[in-house]
């Protein structure tokens, strides 16, 4: 996203309605209560790869999060 105006509009939209970020990524609103479900949805639809997920988990573990 190169247009600053577009970015400001998006930030304002998320501020006003945080759930709108889900629709930006095509995530059904009914999954919004469970982060695990959201990640599984992204994995199932190929929006994130298994490697990306593994890397994210490793990064979280290195920061002290227990997985």
């Amino acid at each position: 996203m190169n247009n600053p105006l577009q970015m400001i509009q998006m930030v304002n939209q998320i501020k006003n309605n945080p759930m709108s970020i889900l629709s930006q990524f095509g995530i059904p609103q009914n999954l919004s209560n469970n982060p695990q479900d959201i990640i599984q949805h992204l994995l199932n639809n190929g929006q994130i790869s298994q490697d990306q997920y593994n890397n994210a988990i490793k990064q979280a573990q290195s920061m002290g999060f227990k997985i």
Binding site: Q36, I39, Q40, L43, N44, G46, S49, Q50, Y53, N54, I57, K58, Q61, K66, I67
Partner: peptide
């Protein structure tokens, strides 16, 4: 990939 116990393994997500 390291997990903590069986619960950690069960909660680890995999792509299809």
């Amino acid at each position: 990939v390291w997990v903590q116990g069986e619960t950690g393994a069960k909660s680890y997500l995999l792509a299809p």
